[in-house]
Amino acid sequence: MRVLVVDDSPVDRKIAEMLLKKNGGMFEVIPVDSGIKALEVLGLNEGKSERTHINEQKIDIVLTDYFMPHMTGYDLLKTVKENSNLRSIPVVMMSSENDPEIISSCKGIGAEDFFVKPFKLKDVQRLRTYAAKTPMCKHGTKRKLPVDVIPENSSYESCPRVPKVAVA
């Protein structure tokens, strides 16, 4: 799973990166230091709604700090959730402030979760649950078969349009 870690603090960004990479190789981390750079990685330009190569790096989860200069994590979250090509990507917010109003407003526009800094091992475990919810078919690893491919009888047989696949 590819995690885009967005934080203006080099220390907090490195902590998140180290904890995610230590988690059995499940996460590939793409660290950036601003919301503007995150938009570039996601294939969005500042001031434009879309580019032709949306989410070129196929980001699975965005983990972003709330308070950052120039573009806050809230603004990044809002931009991702307003984009039809990106809104399915889980966005998890982080902040050193445990402010119920901020947490509520983030979850209200689509944040999956809100972590209080410093980022901890238990937060990585929670991120794994969001990674499990991310649909794998968008990366081409799974696909649905058309209904007409599945035979009506209950015996197993080879599917004529999909070689070497047994269907019931």
Rank of each mutant, 00 (worst) to 15 (best):
V3I: 11
V3Q: 01
L4P: 00
L4M: 07
V5G: 02
S9M: 10
S9N: 11
P10H: 04
V11H: 10
D12Y: 03
K14E: 13
A16W: 06
L19K: 03
L20T: 03
K21A: 05
K22A: 15
G25R: 09
G25C: 04
G25K: 07
M26C: 06
E28M: 08
V29T: 00
V29G: 00
I30Y: 06
P31K: 05
P31I: 07
V32G: 01
V32Q: 03
D33T: 06
S34V: 00
I36L: 15
A38T: 09
V41T: 12
V41I: 13
E46N: 05
G47R: 09
G47K: 11
S49K: 15
S49H: 15
E50S: 14
E50T: 15
E50G: 08
R51I: 14
R51T: 15
R51E: 15
R51S: 15
I54Q: 09
I54P: 09
I54T: 15
N55Y: 13
E56Y: 10
I59V: 10
I59Q: 01
I59K: 02
D60H: 07
T64Y: 00
M68V: 00
H70S: 08
M71P: 05
Y74N: 00
Y74C: 01
L76R: 02
K78F: 01
K78M: 05
E82C: 06
N83M: 05
S84V: 11
N85I: 00
N85V: 07
L86A: 03
L86C: 08
R87G: 00
S88T: 14
I89D: 02
I89N: 01
P90I: 02
V92S: 01
V92N: 00
S95D: 05
S96I: 13
N98Q: 12
N98E: 14
N98R: 12
N98M: 10
D99K: 11
P100K: 15
I103M: 04
S104Q: 12
C106V: 07
I109R: 06
G110K: 00
E112T: 04
D113M: 01
F114K: 10
F114T: 04
V116S: 06
V116Q: 06
V116H: 04
P118V: 09
F119P: 04
K120M: 08
V124W: 00
V124G: 00
Q125Y: 14
Q125D: 13
Q125E: 15
R126P: 03
T129C: 10
T129E: 08
T129W: 04
A131Y: 11
A132G: 06
A132I: 12
K133I: 07
K138W: 05
H139Q: 14
G140E: 01
T141N: 11
T141D: 13
R143M: 15
R143I: 10
R143T: 10
R143E: 09
K144P: 08
L145G: 03
P146I: 09
V147G: 07
D148I: 10
I150F: 07
P151D: 11
E152M: 12
N153L: 11
N153F: 09
N153C: 03
S154H: 12
S155T: 10
Y156T: 10
P160F: 06
P160Y: 05
K164D: 12
V165M: 13
A166P: 02
V167F: 13
A168H: 11
